[in-house]
Every structure is written in structure tokens, then in C-alpha cells.
């Protein structure tokens, strides 16, 4: 285990949500990078080095589910990067769709400070995602 800050990519078209996640996670020692949609996120993720991706579902240009499916098609280690879906939608079908797309975990917005911090801590750097 290195002592580098664990890198988290936050993918959300809401500037407010991106700022909030940064506000919660940076003091806990995480290094945050941001993307506004799935296309931007995929470009950044392909560069590698992220310990976790926190991704919204409804976004312009490329939504979160399409992004996750594209991510999981990439070779390891990029394709196995743990991913946490954060969505306003709370139905069982939404959770199942996220799981099928390749999410490791699903959180419902609004994102509670403690819950977000603890789940990110548990998932960042977790073993590579497997179907």
C-alpha cells in the first residue's frame, strides 16, 4: 500500500454535486477529479490511475449507465475500476440497471456526508470489478 492520496473521479453534470463531493472527500484525504458527463469521464478514466469513480445517471451527451458499460469493456486495470453510482432514482429497477451496467454500489441522492465518506473509503482501491 502506498501513501499516495486515493484518486476519485466524480462524474456529474451538477456543479453543486461535484462541489459537495469534493467538500466531503478532500478533507478525508482523497484527491478529486471531475467530469461533467460520460464522454469526459471516459476520456479521463482511460488515462488510468483512479481508485474509484462516483457517477451520476442522468447526464447530457453520455449518461452514467452508458459510461459504465463502456468502462467495463476496457481492458484491466481501467475496466475494473470500482464504480459507485449516485442517483436520485430509488427504484429496484434503477439499482438493477446500475448493477448490470457494472456498478459496485448504488447510493441514492441527496448524498449524506457520512455515508458517502464511508462508502468511498471502502470502495476506493477495492479489487477490480468482475461481472
Amino acid at each position: 500500500m502506498t501513501d499516495r492520496a486515493r484518486r476519485v473521479l466524480v462524474v456529474d453534470d451538477s456543479a453543486l454535486v461535484r462541489r459537495w463531493v469534493r467538500h466531503v472527500l478532500e478533507p478525508a484525504g482523497f484527491a478529486i477529479e471531475e467530469a461533467l458527463n460520460g464522454i469526459e469521464a471516459l476520456e479521463k478514466a482511460l488515462g488510468g490511475g483512479f481508485d474509484l469513480i462516483v457517477v451520476d445517471v442522468n447526464m447530457p451527451r453520455m449518461d452514467g449507465m452508458t459510461f459504465l458499460r463502456s468502462l467495463r469493456r476496457q481492458p484491466l486495470p481501467v475496466g475494473g475500476t470500482p464504480a459507485l453510482v449516485a442517483s436520485t432514482e430509488n427504484g429496484p429497477q434503477d439499482r438493477e440497471a446500475a448493477r448490470r451496467a457494472g456498478a459496485n454500489f448504488y447510493l441514492v441522492k441527496p448524498l449524506d456526508e457520512e455515508i458517502l465518506r464511508s462508502h468511498v473509503a471502502a470502495l476506493a482501491g477495492a479489487p477490480a470489478w468482475t461481472p
Binding site: 445517471v57 442522468n58 451527451r61 449518461d63 452514467g64 449507465m65 452508458t66 429497477q93 440497471a97
Partner: peptide, 10 residues
């Protein structure tokens, strides 16, 4: 229920 349809419509 399809996120791509929702975001496209939006």
C-alpha cells in the same frame, strides 16, 4: 426507464 432516452429528450 432508459437513461439514454431521458437524457436525449432532455
Amino acid at each position: 426507464d432508459d437513461a439514454a432516452l431521458r437524457t436525449g429528450a432532455l
